[in-house]
């Protein structure tokens, strides 16, 4: 018997009599609660196990990058140069000198606003269409082939068409976000609706829920895990698409900021912007995942 975790007096107290084969019927267990300090040390240890390895990897990569790009004439700046060049942008993200000469906060918030609008529209339309396709065999037969073709069109391919239709950059960018993120939401919702167990449908039938109640009380909660998978893929795709779309439409936005930095040969600014884009994409993904976790609490467990 191995008890690596129980290296306390009680463990030895139990082990001792059995080893001597002395019949001691009851071994009094002293209630053991690790002292508070010990608990905190354990917590700190657990956190360290999570945090230290990525920190080491990042530090090593930085060092490697620094060594490779340090020599004169290197086409990309080393991290130390990046920091020196972009110090102003990092420490003052809120400046606004009119036009597109704004701090990174304003660029990012403009991009996030576009994503928020396009993605919200996609979520509403995606869940509605997905429900239709999942519920009705005829809707599926009619629409599914269309969806399967349309979803393979790259996001940017829609941009010229939407510019022609809307004659303005802003709605076009929002449309590109919408059209990029709507497909996974539709498809996952449809799968979720199709997978609702017959039992739940029977319950609804016996209770005589009307279609609206059935939608709100059975369909949405039952399909929620699938819907959130779609929503999570959707938010990732829309964040991918916004940068590319903004590079083309111009104006305020992180995408155009990157393009502008390239045109002015501010490579360090590009690197800083990429760092922010990555962090925000990560946060958005976590946000939707966390929301899904809260909403679908209990749904998956039978």
């Amino acid at each position: 018997m191995n008890m690596p975790a129980m290296k306390t007096e009680t463990a030895t107290a139990i082990a001792a009599p059995t080893a001597n084969t002395v019949a001691s019927p009851v071994v009094t267990m002293t209630p053991k609660r690790p002292p508070r300090a010990e608990k905190y040390i354990k917590m700190a240890k657990n956190t360290a196990v999570q945090v230290v390895p990525p920190l080491i990897v990042i530090a090593l990569l930085m060092l490697f990058w620094e060594l490779v790009c340090r020599r004169a004439g290197s086409s990309l700046p080393p991290p130390s140069r990046v920091f020196k060049d972009t110090k102003e942008l990092i420490f003052d993200p809120f400046f606004d000198r009119g036009g597109i000469d704004k701090g990174l906060f304003w660029h990012l918030s403009a991009s996030l606003q576009r994503v928020a609008l396009g993605y919200s529209l996609a979520a509403i339309a995606g869940i509605a269409l997905g429900t239709l396709v999942g519920q009705s065999v005829w809707a599926m037969r009619g629409l599914d082939p269309l969806f399967q073709v349309l979803r393979t069109i790259p996001p940017l391919a829609w941009l010229p068409l939407s510019l022609a239709a809307f004659r303005d950059g802003q709605p076009s960018a929002i449309f590109v976000i919408f059209i990029t993120s709507v497909w996974p939401i539709i498809i996952n919702t449809a799968v979720g609706i199709r997978n609702i167990p017959q039992d739940y449908r029977n319950v609804a039938a016996v209770v005589q829920l009307n279609p609206l109640e059935f939608f709100a009380k059975i369909m949405i909660p039952a399909a929620a895990p699938y819907i959130f998978t779609g929503l999570r893929i959707g938010i990732g795709l829309s964040w991918l698409a916004i940068v590319a779309a903004e590079m083309l439409i111009g104006g305020v936005g992180i995408g155009f900021f990157i393009w502008d930095a390239w045109n002015s040969s501010h490579i360090s600014e590009i690197i800083l912007a990429l760092f922010y884009v990555g962090i925000i994409g990560f946060v958005l993904d976590r946000l939707i995942a966390g929301l899904g976790k809260i909403v679908t609490r209990g749904t998956s467990a039978g």
């Binding site: 029977n202 319950v203 016996v206 005589q208 749904t299």
Partner: peptide
């Protein structure tokens, strides 16, 4: 057609997992 005048107790209970015990009964 199905209706509450012929309520069914299903073989595998068929409780809705996202509702509490109370809410499951309350639904009907």
């Amino acid at each position: 057609s199905p209706g509450p005048d012929r309520a069914v107790v299903f073989q595998n209970h068929s409780l809705l997992p996202w509702l509490t015990v109370y809410e499951n009964v309350r639904l009907g």
